[in-house]
């Protein structure tokens, strides 16, 4: 893996249903750390992430890596749903990228990733045989298999119950360490546990405000006083921002 670059968003405007969501957004997402983008539903978090991922084109402006090399081919994307292929075994779901690129799948590496996810005994299971948390772990293994320095995650844990979600946050923090991660969430606790930079998106046109993050390395404990306090402050800020 090449070193994880910082992402520079310059003068970005994103069209969504006929209107521009951001009026020239300037933002730098630091390299090699977890940046959490936080905001209410419909504020444009997903649209922004899709533009960074190269799935949609911005109406204006550009996204670039700070090392000057093109971003294409260096980004892995993990969506809101696990997007597993129901007809493919777990291990084949993990190697999907190579199979779609016409390369030989590295099954040993896929199996090692699944072992790391605690799924060593489920390599040949079908997705339908797995629980929601297990499926999301397979999706995380598939994201890691791509081995890209930049990882974009769109509310990957929002559909999970709180215990499974907390475990997934730990696993993501551990396995994605050292990469440039952009994580979208609407959960203040998730932001405070994982964020090395927390950015609150609010308003119309949307502004992005950097929030002070709690001390300590990620994943921070959910019952840490700093995390609890920061979570409360964050929720208060979100409530204020939502007031008309």
């Amino acid at each position: 893996m090449t070193p994880a670059p910082a992402l520079a968003l310059r003068g970005l405007a994103v069209a969504y249903r006929g209107r521009d969501l951001f009026a020239g957004l300037d933002l730098t997402l630091r390299g090699g750390v977890f940046s959490v983008l936080l905001g209410a539903s419909g504020v444009g978090k997903t649209s922004l992430l899709r533009v960074i991922a190269g799935l949609d084109r911005p109406a204006r402006g550009a996204v670039a890596a700070d090392d000057g090399a093109p971003l294409a081919g260096r980004v892995a994307w993990m969506g809101q749903r696990d997007l597993l292929q129901p007809w493919a075994r777990v291990i084949d779901n993990v190697t999907l990228g190579d199979r779609l690129r016409g390369r030989r799948p590295d099954r040993d590496r896929a199996a090692a990733l699944l072992r790391r996810m605690g799924l060593a005994d489920r390599l040949t299971a079908l997705p339908a045989e797995l629980s929601g948390g297990m499926r999301q772990r397979v999706a995380l293994a598939r994201t890691l298999y791509e081995d890209r320095p930049v990882v974009l995650m769109d509310e990957p844990f929002s559909a999970l119950d709180s215990v499974t979600r907390a475990r997934m946050q730990d696993l993501a923090a551990e396995t994605l360490h050292g990469r440039t991660v952009v994580l979208i969430t609407h959960d203040p606790l998730e932001a405070c546990r994982l964020g090395q930079a927390v950015l609150l998106m609010a308003g119309d046109p949307v502004r992005v405000e950097a929030i002070e993050v709690p001390a300590g390395a990620v994943p921070r404990a959910a019952d840490d006083d700093g995390v609890l306090h920061a979570q409360g402050v964050l929720l208060r800020r979100m409530l204020d921002a939502a007031r008309p």
Binding site: L55, G73, W77, G79, L83, Q85, G97, L100, R101, G102
Partner: peptide, 26 residues
């Protein structure tokens, strides 16, 4: 084909022929 799968394939720099064969077809 569910659009999420096609987005995933694009983020993986998939080849169009293989997307047809291994994603759209099944």
């Amino acid at each position: 084909t569910p659009p999420g799968w096609l987005d995933l394939a694009r983020s993986m720099d998939a080849r169009p022929g293989l997307v047809l064969l291994r994603l759209r077809l099944p």
